[in-house]
Simulated scan of single mutants.
Amino acid sequence: MDEVVRRDVEHAHGDTRMISALAAPRRTSAGPAVLLLHDAFGLSDDMLRIAHDLARLGFPVLAADVWGDRTLPTTQEEIGPLIGSMVSNRSRWTARLDAALAAAADQPEVDPEQVVALGYCFGGSSALELLRTGGRLRGAVSIHGGLDLLEPDADWSAADPEAHVLVCTGADDPMATAEHRAALESGLRRAGVDWEIDLYSDTRHAFTSPHAKNSPTPDAVAYHPRSAARSWAATTRFLTELFPTVRPVEH
């Protein structure tokens, strides 16, 4: 018997149908969980594999369909307007994230008081925004998040001061420069949130993404396997520190 349960979870934000995906250990009690927020390419097979890997570690995961209708953009011409539609209307952005968090909390496998948001690229920015705006989270993990999408003078007062933040980013990421990191750090300090920034040398944006392996702009976007492995190790360590009773599922 497969010890990981999988199912689609349909929910909505306004007129947008969101077809998220659950991957969870097969068990009878609710437990600490992860809200997985996808990168610019949508809820792809890559994101679903991450959800499955986390479920094997013992965490129920709702992989959110933030774009809606399982939209899977493949070009910058498609991606730009999708990200722009969120950043130009932050209330829409946060409402879409709130809808995903509510859908996660509704799942019987999920303890709604024990959720961490984990995101990649645009999803990393989203995880931080969800925490900043008062999302009911124990923590947020941003993997090569676009810190340039965050407002430099953003108000973090709605964030839970008991939450924890992990940011894994490249030292040479043009979308997460030293200035962007300093602005984020300042906001987290003001909010009293416990934070950690892991900075990887010779590493650029999207360093975990298979889409970045043949990047046409390697000075800005590039796959980096060592940094990808380090960020995964940091993420799993962060989760086990927060939730030490969670155990991997049996093979």
Rank of each mutant, 00 (worst) to 15 (best):
R226T: 13
L239A: 07
P112E: 06
E241H: 14
D160L: 10
H180M: 04
H224R: 12
D160R: 15
F238G: 09
L149V: 08
H144S: 03
W195A: 14
T217R: 13
G187L: 03
R204G: 03
V141R: 11
P225K: 09
A220M: 13
G134A: 06
A233F: 08
L147S: 02
L150A: 01
G187T: 01
I197Q: 08
D148W: 09
V221K: 03
L118E: 06
G145E: 02
E185A: 14
P210T: 10
A159I: 12
R204F: 01
S125F: 02
G192P: 12
V165G: 08
V110W: 05
V167C: 05
G124V: 08
G146E: 01
C168V: 06
V115Y: 01
L118Y: 12
C168T: 05
A183P: 04
R136C: 00
T240K: 14
L128P: 01
L199V: 11
N214M: 11
A222L: 14
R132G: 07
P174E: 05
A233N: 13
S215Q: 13
C121Y: 03
H224A: 15
P210E: 11
E196N: 13
W156Q: 07
D111Q: 13
V167Y: 06
R226A: 14
D155Q: 13
H164C: 11
W195I: 02
G145M: 04
R136M: 00
V110L: 09
A117F: 03
L137M: 07
E162Y: 00
E162N: 11
L147W: 00
P152Y: 08
Y223I: 02
H164E: 15
V141I: 13
M175L: 12
D173N: 01
R204C: 00
V221M: 04
R181L: 01
V167K: 01
S125Y: 06
G170F: 07
S227M: 08
Y200E: 13
A228Y: 03
E241T: 15
F238R: 08
A140P: 01
D160A: 15
T240M: 10
P152G: 06
D111A: 11
D194I: 04
P225F: 09
S157A: 14
T236D: 08
K213V: 12
W156F: 15
V193H: 04
T208P: 05
A140K: 03
T203L: 09
P225G: 07
V141M: 09
S142F: 04
Y200Q: 12
L242R: 14
E109Q: 15
T203N: 11
I197W: 00
P112H: 08
E109C: 08
A233V: 09
P210H: 11
P161S: 09
C121S: 15
F122Q: 13
E241M: 10
L242G: 10
A234V: 06
W232Y: 11
S125N: 03
H211K: 13
A206M: 13
S142I: 03
L239H: 08
R204H: 15
G119V: 05
R230I: 00
S142Q: 05
E241Y: 09
A222Q: 14
S231R: 00
P216G: 09
E151S: 08
A212R: 06
D172Q: 11
V115G: 03
T133V: 10
H164A: 15
R132A: 08
L130K: 07
R136Q: 14
L150V: 02
Q114M: 11
R181C: 04
A171E: 15
T235Q: 00
Y200T: 10
